[in-house]
């Protein structure tokens, strides 16, 4: 297979773009997609300080790498979830990346903040591990950014992640989730920072290839709790659709963003208040994170 740009030997075929690329031309393609994402949703200002949430996996380290390459001022944030060897190893990958690039990395521990690591949260709440884990991550990303005076958090969500989330929301017609799904979430309160997903135009295959070709040492092993996650089942369904009809995932997500999303946006905004305990934003009196932390501390 030949590179579409230069005719050299291709290293990656992108069926949905009906193209194949050599390594340098693929890296260019990748960076262009990130630039396009940033431009289209006005995700970042050129001189803005960005908090990059990193997990040690291919997506978030690829994101950090590409933002550094584009000249953004970044600080990494690694959340230690306390998930056995997986967390030990993934933390090491993030620290090595940060040290190698000479960039700052903040490490925050879920066990310290909540009172127990993700496996304990799972036992205490008797809920799927991803639920307490996801809640803690979103909360801590926002709080760390606020504490440091950083106005935006960038995450490594890719096209497949976004398509799988969309699929899940549609499967249950979760209309509030559909209204919230976007590559860029604005700040709707002084205590909420913006959240952006500069990789939303790139598939998992593309983020993996980028990380590999840039020789980024990322963790290939998955979180042990990922296996049972419904988002994985949704990704598998979407992958089968994609195989039968290249571009299916792209059309599913982009069609929603361009044509359907606006229809779900609520006219009436929900009222946001500050949590009586921690001061972070909530719709109730005590935020979900503080309730979770209470529950964990009470049980232990």
């Amino acid at each position: 297979m030949k590179c579409r740009k230069c005719g050299g030997t291709a290293v990656l075929e992108l069926r949905r773009h009906n193209a194949a690329f050599c390594a340098p031309d693929f890296l260019d393609f990748f960076r262009n997609q990130v630039r396009e994402a940033v431009r289209k949703y006005r995700m970042l200002d050129k001189d803005e300080h960005v908090l990059v949430a990193v997990s040690g996996g291919k997506d978030s380290l690829a994101l950090w790498d590409v933002l550094l390459d584009e000249g953004y001022r970044t600080t990494g944030l690694y959340l230690d979830l306390g998930i056995f060897d997986y967390s030990v190893e993934s933390r090491r990958k993030c620290e090595a990346f940060a040290a190698g690039r000479g960039v700052p990395l903040i490490v925050a521990s879920v066990a310290e903040e909540v009172g127990g690591p993700v496996p304990v949260i799972k036992e205490v709440t008797r809920r799927p591990p991803c639920s307490g884990c996801g809640l803690s991550k979103r909360y801590l990303m926002n709080r760390v950014a606020l504490d440091r005076g950083i106005g935006v958090v960038a995450t490594g969500h890719n096209l497949d992640d976004e398509a799988a989330t969309l699929f899940g929301s549609i499967a249950h017609w979760q209309t509030d989730a559909l209204a919230r799904q976007s590559p860029a979430l604005p700040s709707t309160h002084a205590k909420l920072v913006r959240r952006v997903k500069p990789l939303y135009r790139l598939s998992e295959l593309e983020t993996s290839a980028y990380a590999f070709l840039r020789r980024i040492d990322y963790i290939v092993e998955e979180c042990p709790f990922a296996k049972g996650a419904t988002s994985i089942a949704h990704k598998e369904i979407l992958n089968r659709m994609e195989d039968a009809s290249p571009g299916a995932k792209h059309n599913f997500l982009f069609g929603f963003l361009e044509k359907a999303r606006a229809a779900f946006e609520r006219t009436e905004a929900v009222e946001l208040r500050e949590c009586a305990r921690c001061g972070q934003v909530t719709t109730g009196t005590i935020c979900a994170f503080c309730k979770l932390a209470d529950q964990v501390k009470r049980t232990l």
Partner: peptide, 20 residues
Amino acid sequence: QVVRDGDTIELRPVMSGGAR
């Protein structure tokens, strides 16, 4: 691409999972 009998290839999954 054609792979020969003496070759070694790694098939590395690209999927990552869970709520992130």
